[in-house]
Design a protein around this nucleic acid. Structure first.
Lengths: 248, 248
DNA sequence: GATTGTATCTCGCAA
DNA sequence: TTGCGAGGTACAATC
């Protein structure tokens, strides 16, 4: 695999950009960003990605996050001169742009990618509230759901229902251990409801400070097991889903 | 550029992974994720990235964000059989993994990338408070800074100072238009300070709801111009910085 | 290790 | 378009 010539690469880039192809470029470059903030990235070897929807990313050799990026839609411009290729990526809606000067190219790919595969995530907060709607006893014995994702004045409450004593009960779900922010959010929902309404935080765990705050405000915490929920999901929806089939 | 053979690619992958090289792979694949949640991604053409620190990303042809990822450090495993390559990326610290089955490869790159370039960002909240420390009159005529990034009981306050009347003043900076969350944060800082302390939110703008909440709680809003701050930065630090030089 | 606050957060949803 | 909350948020600083 020979090192691609800069001018050739420039031509390929121009064509690929106008054809809205998926492009990856491993190259020596420097980059400026101006927009909500300003940044400058000195010369070095990185991976550039231009996606079919003009999403743009610059990745360094290490670190999960891109060092520069632009969400779509963007105007993408390519200009070539003797010394380098200049790539300009400017957001359509915002005054925000990244300018890359490319000094040398190690590898380039461009082409249309075929990806119609469905991406399915399980056990998001939405999924959980769905399960709990069908199995209200997991919230509490005698609990009945009256509405899911109810739009209250103060925000969207995951579950609203009544308990065994017909007391109105607001249920907030957290997938992760609940922290202070979760309690604050719940407290906002509970504003003005008075002591006749129960407020319950449902999560796999709760931080120490969050539990204290809950108690202080007369709210309740109840633990739920994500594994139990997943097992229910598996039992009810079957195991045709390869993810669950493979890992449970 | 011929379509690489699966077995050859598998061998290259194994070598590159053990040599901790930077790897990009454009391939037909499907992926499972199990960890904090669960997900399954059906077959399709995507870009896989394995970085030198084992950061792992799967990018679809469109959309800024990766569809699957794993922050470093990871164990990366490669196994090859007749039908496909199986890539296993498991986080070292968490019980969380992504498994990719690769059915065909359109393009592969692997190699060490040389990137010592410095990345410098300007006008983060930190930068702004630095400027304001040197130019307290931008906060308010007669304002004097007593401390920057002061650690209070309730959190880190951007700037603490006294106004022309020697009244203690807490200043919170937001780079973007300030919303409700900013006001809530500020309110937490102000808890228990009483009316003798002024609380000021400094931002390029404020949302309607946030302004109402500010007024209700007796706090103040003051507009700052990011452009003015940048001009000061340029005047004081000179224009040796290419980012500023090029765009101001 | 757990918690907290920030982010050029991104993204989706609703008013 | 703007506001607002969710995220497998990631990440750094701090306790």
């Amino acid at each position: 695999m020979g090192k691609p010539d800069l001018e050739e690469v420039g031509e390929q880039l121009k064509k690929a950009v106008s054809a809205k192809e998926f492009i990856t470029l491993i190259c020596l470059c420097e980059a400026d960003y101006v927009g909500r903030a300003r940044s400058f990235l000195e010369k070095g070897e990185r991976l550039l990605i231009i996606k079919e929807d003009t999403s743009f990313l610059i990745h360094r050799p290490s670190g999960l996050e891109p060092v520069n990026w632009q969400p779509p839609p963007n105007y993408v411009g390519v200009t070539v001169n003797r010394e380098h290729i200049v790539l300009t990526v400017k957001r359509v809606r915002l005054s925000e742009k990244v300018i890359v000067r490319i000094h040398g190219v190690k590898s380039i790919f461009s082409g249309k990618l075929e990806d119609k595969g469905v991406f399915q995530m399980y056990l998001s907060e939405k999924e959980i509230s769905e399960i709990l709607r069908r199995h209200p006893e997991l919230v509490e014995e005698g609990f009945r759901v009256t509405s899911v994702e109810a739009r209250e004045k103060t925000g969207v409450v995951d579950i609203v229902g009544v308990d065994a004593n017909n007391r109105r009960t607001i249920v907030e779900i957290k997938k992760d251990r609940a922290g202070l922010e979760a309690v604050r959010q719940l407290a906002r929902y509970a504003v003005g409801t008075g002591p006749s309404v129960r407020v319950v935080l449902l999560a796999p765990g709760v931080t120490e400070g969050a539990e204290k705050m809950l108690r202080r405000r007369g709210m309740e915490f109840r633990r739920i097991s994500m594994l139990d929920l997943t097992k229910i999901l598996t039992r009810e929806k079957g195991v045709e889903n390869s993810c669950i089939k493979r890992f449970l």
